[in-house]
Design a protein around this nucleic acid. Structure first.
Length: 421
DNA sequence: TCTGGGGTCCTAGGACCC
DNA sequence: TCTGGGGTCCTAGGACCC
């Protein structure tokens, strides 16, 4: 038996935590670089502000209705998320952290009757609200796909108090008939369109389809979805996250970049960050990919997009080795005369640090000192006492992320801790 | 003028092997 | 005119998730 807990408008809820004045006001949160709207309060949704719309397209509406606008503050959201997960973890035998604002839980008692299950869902909600002021909804069902649907129903229908249980067959069928197939977990826009063209428009239609036919026309995963809709579990709880298979760091620039030196600074900065993530996970990488591209939306200017890979002689998480490879890759794809909008660095061929197998002659005495150097750099940067960085990252602010509406780091920086007077 | 970032998995097709 | 069958591995691209 699964319960899916999903926080409501999570980023907006985080921004409201220390701003009670925003509790009934329309609020939106923007993506990195203040590009798109990625979270909206109920009031903002009611104004017709869509998900993922570009900020500049709705600037007028936002101003007219005095909507509070925030840049993404991931430091804050990650910290609040960790607190949410800690609370949930203490309430159940096992759980899966599915995203920054969602978790699948195994119910404490598999065979609890309906009333007890609903009671548990309400307790989860109350605790998150009382201890953190974070509102959430709970969906309960025998499969993950059904728990997702139950959660969606809990969000739409206010009358059920934020908790919906879909174990009952009749209630399930009722909901299936009213719900468009595109709301099913795993059915995106493309699949939805294709399903509709085959006359499969509601969840009821999909649940009643032949699994074999679905597999032939689509994929094994959609076949599993059909089984899950019929109460037969195919997706299990993944309580310990698997090692990552790739690590990516990419950003759009605040302004277009035309000079090689600036692009190199950006690629260097992203490589440094990617290498930090790699070490946080205790992994090494043997391959690095660098990509650059011009703006994707311009119809008038010339487009250019390219990527290049470099293979390291041996798997490493040493920033200097990775920056060296990244710079070489960048040089091979750089073309002058373009206005670059975005660059990124991807690390692949990852392997746990301890399992890496250097070649017989790979380790020189210099390389043996590198882990200590990187440990020292990480320790300084995590100490809270200051930051050191690599020369190649540069110091100019021109291209770095735009964050004009950033809230304080209320819970992670001493000077930002709110004072109550 | 201005349009996010970070992931995973699956499939088709090509290259290659015997 | 007409050119096998069975298999693996890799990569690019697509689709999906939040």
């Amino acid at each position: 038996m699964f319960a899916l807990v999903d926080c409501n408008n999570f980023y907006v809820s985080c921004e409201r935590l220390f701003r009670p004045d925003l509790r009934r006001r329309a609020v939106v949160v923007l993506s990195n670089n203040d590009g798109c709207v990625v979270a909206r309060s109920q009031e903002a949704k009611a104004l017709g502000i869509g998900m993922a719309v570009p900020h500049f397209q709705v600037r007028g509406i936002l101003e007219r209705h005095n909507v509070a606008v925030f840049s993404s503050n991931y430091t804050l959201y990650a910290d609040i998320s960790a607190r949410v997960m800690t609370i949930l973890d203490a309430m159940v035998p096992s759980m899966e952290v599915y995203s920054i604002d969602e978790a699948f839980l195994h119910l404490p008692d598999e065979h609890a009757p309906l009333q007890q299950r609903l009671e548990f869902g309400r307790k989860v909600r109350e605790r998150l609200l009382q201890w953190l002021r974070i509102p959430a909804c709970v969906g309960i069902a025998p499969t993950k796909t059904l728990a997702k649907l139950a959660n969606g129903a809990a969000k739409h229908e206010t009358s059920n108090g934020g908790v919906v249980d879909l174990c009952d067959l009749l209630q399930r069928q009722q909901l299936f008939k009213q719900t468009p197939v595109g709301e099913v977990w795993g059915v995106g826009r493309r699949t939805r369109d294709k399903l509709q063209s085959m006359g499969i428009c509601t969840v009821a239609d999909l649940a009643g389809s032949s699994p074999e036919k679905i597999r032939r026309r689509f994929s094994v995963n959609l076949q599993r979805t059909v089984y899950e809709l019929n109460g037969q579990p195919c997706f299990t709880l993944e309580s310990s996250p698997a090692n990552k298979q790739q690590i990516l760091c990419s950003r759009s620039f605040a302004q277009r970049i035309t000079a090689f030196d600036e692009l190199r600074e950006a690629v260097c900065t992203y490589t440094v960050r990617a290498a930090e993530k790699l070490r946080e996970q205790g992994q090494t990488a043997q391959q690095i990919t660098v990509f650059i591209r011009t703006g994707a939306f311009s119809t008038t200017e010339r487009h250019y997009s390219n990527s290049a890979q470099r293979r390291l002689d041996f798997a490493s998480n040493d920033t200097l080795a990775l920056v060296h490879a990244a710079t070489s890759a960048l040089q091979s794809i750089w073309r002058s005369g373009y206005r670059y909008a975005k660059a990124g660095v991807m690390l692949t061929d990852l392997c746990p640090e301890k399992e890496e197998q250097p070649g017989l002659f790979d380790y020189t005495s210099e390389q043996q000192h590198k882990p200590a150097l990187m440990q020292a750099v990480d320790a300084i940067n995590n100490s809270g006492k200051g930051r050191i960085w690599f020369g190649g990252q540069g110091i100019k602010e021109d291209w770095r992320m735009k964050r004009s509406h950033l809230s304080p780091a209320y819970t992670t920086r001493w000077e930002d801790i709110p004072t109550v007077s």
